[in-house]
Structures are given as structure tokens and as C-alpha cells.
Design a binder for these strands. Structure first.
Lengths: 143, 143
DNA sequence: ATGGAGTTCCCCACTTTTCCCCACGTATTA
DNA sequence: TAATACGTGGGGAAAAGTGGGGAACTCCAT
């Protein structure tokens, strides 16, 4: 289970340190792809497979489903954790998520999200403001 | 079952003493996360798991569900009670709850809440004033 | 085919943060 | 009043994060 918020620096070579706690889970292989809200999603191989199956089974007669599948499937890349505990992010994904240096790694249960630090702060501050309103809506979803 | 209100000082390293009564319950591991109304929620591992499962199953296609999951899941951190009976609160959570030094630890049955003392006093005074009004609304919820 | 340039990968070393342990002070109880 | 327990603060050791250098491999051009 991935939880927590970590801040790490992306270096000039596009390398990003994975928080120590998550390394063993990702050591068997991981997949990064385009995520929602301008961040990247990072899955373990197993979790990725589940998601990819769902995406592949979307009806390709619907334009929205095609667009969504293209975003996530075509955006995906296998990554591996090196001896220093880092992964390498391809340039097109760094561009997509506007990652420059300061990067937030956020654990969301079955995936990690990678955010530009500034974008993350803007997003969370906005959510915090609306948290009470959002929380009330969540009661409809059983939380 | 957590009940009661305690006041402790957060030190410069972000360490907070847990009231003695609660230590055994938290000794098997605990999780702190962003709470509602600008405080932090602290759960035992078991209670956390129940909540996290609900959050993880929110549909990630809904923007509000994503925002809520990010607040609570990405906000969460495993903490452990040290030999002196303290836990370490990461900086981003201290910032979120505006914790500086004087901190209130409040027991709410299946969770603890951590509040900045001033914020706590303001909040409770306000609630006391409106208690009758609030109570009437609760009748709709079966209390 | 060979040389060169560019890219990728791996390893080493430094710096910073975290964690663990010890010690003091205050409060409480016998 | 003494003794014990709890809360608080600080210092040192270990580990994690970060950056840079060098070797190997590939791709391209001559």
C-alpha cells in the first residue's frame, strides 16, 4: 500500500529517487504513464496489468474511450529502479507533467503520483479550501 | 477507544508525545493523515486499513474523488511510537494543521485528532455556543 | 569497417536528514 | 521529602538522497 507525500529532486539526467519504503514493491518492475490532472502515474507491474486490461476493453467505438486509452496506454513506459533507488523518466513524460527539479512523489494506495512541486501545492491548497464541501459529497460514495 | 483531551508540546524536530493511555493501542503501528477542519487524524493500523480501502475504491474518473483521495491517502504517513512515547509528524502535516508548539490531542472513539491549541479553543468555543442548534440537526442522523 | 560523437548506465563520494539513545527537569505519589 | 514516572530537549551515529565522473555501448558518418 503506497501512502504519503515525499519531495525529491529530479536531476539533469532525468533521474528521480524513489522513497526508500516503496523500492521493494517496485523492484520487480514498474510502469509510468500519463496521469490525470497533469501528473504522472506510477504502477507496479501487477497493478499496471489490471489497469491496462480495463483500458484495453473500453469500447473503441467511443471517441472519449479511444482518447483515454491512447493517453494512458501509449504514454506508458517500463522503468526500473537502479542501485541508488532511482528511476529514469523519459523526456516526453517530464514535459507532460511539467517536471523540472522539485518533484513530489505521492502514494495513492495502488499507485504513485509524480507532481511538479509548485503544481502540487497549488492543487492541494485548492482542495484543502474545498475539503469540507468535497467531504460531504463523499458521504454519498460511502465514506 | 480513544476519549479525552490532552495538551502536549511539539518540539523542533516535529516530535509529539502521545498520552500514556493511548500508547499501547498505537504500539502496533499508526497512521496520521490530513483531517477535516484543519486538524490531523491519527488512526490505529486496523482502523486506517478500513478507511484506506474505502478511499482506494473511489472512482478515479471523478475529479472530487481524486481530490479527496489525494488529501487523505497521499497525506497519510506511517508513524511509530518511540521509546519516549512520541511520534514524528512530517513537516507537510504540521504545516497543514498549523501546528507550531502547543498541540491538543483529542480522542474521538476510533481516531485521535491533533489540533493547534489556539485553533482548538476557537473551534470548541464556537461549537459550544451553537451546541443546541447543532444538536437539533443531529436528530435527522439518528442521534 | 573504423573512428568519433553522443547517450546510457553504473559506481563512487559527499551532504543532508533521520533515527536512536541519553540526560535533565518537572510533576506526582507514597 | 524522597522516589518514580512522564514529558522535553539535545547530541551523535547511521542511512538515505543527490550530484558528478567514467566506462561501455550504440549509432552514424566517413
Amino acid at each position: 500500500m503506497f501512502i504519503g507525500e515525499y519531495s525529491h529532486n529530479l536531476d539533469e539526467k532525468g533521474r528521480l529517487a524513489v522513497p526508500k519504503k516503496f523500492r521493494t514493491a517496485l523492484s520487480k518492475g514498474a510502469v509510468v504513464t500519463r496521469g490525470l490532472d497533469n501528473c504522472l502515474f506510477l504502477y507496479t507491474k501487477d497493478e499496471w496489468k489490471k489497469l491496462a486490461d480495463k483500458l484495453a476493453n473500453l469500447p473503441f467505438s467511443q471517441a472519449n474511450a479511444r482518447a483515454f486509452a491512447r493517453l494512458m496506454l501509449a504514454g506508458a513506459m517500463d522503468v526500473s529502479v537502479d542501485k541508488q533507488g532511482r528511476i529514469i523518466l523519459p523526456e516526453y513524460l517530464r514535459t507532460y507533467a511539467s517536471l523540472s527539479k522539485e518533484t513530489v512523489v505521492a502514494g495513492l494506495y495502488n499507485r504513485l503520483e509524480l507532481w511538479d512541486k509548485t503544481a502540487w501545492e497549488t492543487y492541494t491548497q485548492q482542495s484543502e479550501k474545498e475539503s469540507n464541501k468535497i467531504a460531504e459529497q463523499m458521504s454519498e460514495l460511502g465514506v
